[in-house]
Design a protein around this nucleic acid. Structure first.
Lengths: 208, 208
DNA sequence: AGATGTGAATGGGTTCACAGCA
DNA sequence: TGCTGTGAACCCATTCACATCT
């Protein structure tokens, strides 16, 4: 595997999302500048990113949408199906369940967790819910790959402690807390909505 | 104002969030490496970022938490209070209302919008809701600064079109769509939870 | 001694510019 | 002609290394 930057991977996923939609609409080919415009990125950047996936377009006709899509998928999608758990069934957790693509080929939510009695041992939005006490055993026994943390700030580090001693591979952390993990095998991605909002406020006020 | 990078601003906001909590806990001083650890960043990076805000610590005692906090606030917080609207009162919108700091000095949600009859003309989580038809006039008449978009994919571009012709300064876009705006005065920050999840899946599988 | 602030070096990411192709 | 793929140049971000301070 060639080395590739975190940012390129992110953009490839964005391209893939756009291409999926184009494909549905029956689009057959497109040029780098078209994809660039849709993603608000320079055409050179798009071509540079595409070099990594090893699919080549034609100067005359650009890229074949279907083939390009397949090539990017081959590059970014994990080989095996990934088992995902979601922890924290509040509004944010439910929002993610809403957005989660049901027919995703590669990512599957296998269980959801909370500590509130009225939310556990039920089926919520089609997913089976359990108490957090069951989290550790569940992750270990089912070889869960990824966890999405959507619990409030005060509970986040406790969850991290539980997950720290499992074979988990990655965490997507939406809680407003920087998790401290000693297990450096676990990749952690953090998304803090309030930090993003403050960032927006800063740049909106004197952009440039 | 010295030029500063987008990433530095983001980190400064993270520092500020951490320092606020330390201050509440009564912490009085700290060293760069401590802040670095909490933010999972190198100490040099922290010091470099702090150069931009113009607050200087002492080699013997590090930084005074309260003063540093105030300096960062002076640097990143907008001068005026910013009026914010939220568009889309689904689970995601409600999640943001949950997380929104009520006593924020600088950011204030002044109204929320949706197109569903049972969600409008009410008070939801303490915020007044209106139909999207009212959005444009509201933004213009109240000189709204920022908009948070949490509507589904199919409605997002329509909202962007409405906001495009206002004096709005920034948009935080949570919808899974790259908004096309002709008004380049508007700063747009995009957060796509599903792209973040796929990114996590990629790096979790062969991290490094 | 053990921090800080910062010039200099390094490393990565993006854009430029152009050869090559249909 | 008008695109693609890509070396080279440029630019920005991070880290190193060290003079400086208490």
């Amino acid at each position: 595997m060639n080395k590739i930057s975190e940012k390129s991977v992110y953009r490839l996923i964005v391209y893939k999302t756009l291409l999926d939609k184009l494909m549905e609409e029956g689009r057959e080919k497109l040029f780098s500048y078209e994809l660039a415009k849709m993603a608000s990125i320079s055409p050179e950047q798009v071509r540079r990113d595409l070099m990594a996936v090893g699919y080549f377009g034609s100067p005359a006709h650009g890229y074949n949408v279907k083939e390009l899509c397949a090539s990017i998928a081959a590059f970014i999608d994990p080989e095996q199906r990934q088992k995902v758990v979601l922890i924290g069934i509040g509004n944010l957790g439910k929002a993610i369940l809403d957005h989660f693509p049901r027919q995703s080929r590669k990512l599957e939510i296998v269980a959801i967790f909370d500590n509130s009695p009225e939310k556990i041992n039920r089926v919520i939005q089609g997913y089976r819910s359990y108490h957090i006490d069951k989290l550790k055993d569940f992750v270990v026994e089912n070889a869960v790959d990824l966890a999405i943390i959507t619990v409030p700030a005060n509970a986040a580090q406790q969850i991290a402690g539980i997950l720290n001693n499992t074979n988990l591979k990655g965490i997507l952390n939406f809680s407003p807390v920087q998790l401290q993990l000693s297990n450096s095998k676990i990749f952690v991605e953090r998304v803090d909505m309030m930090v993003s909002l403050q960032k927006t406020a800063y740049w909106a006020n004197f952009n440039r």
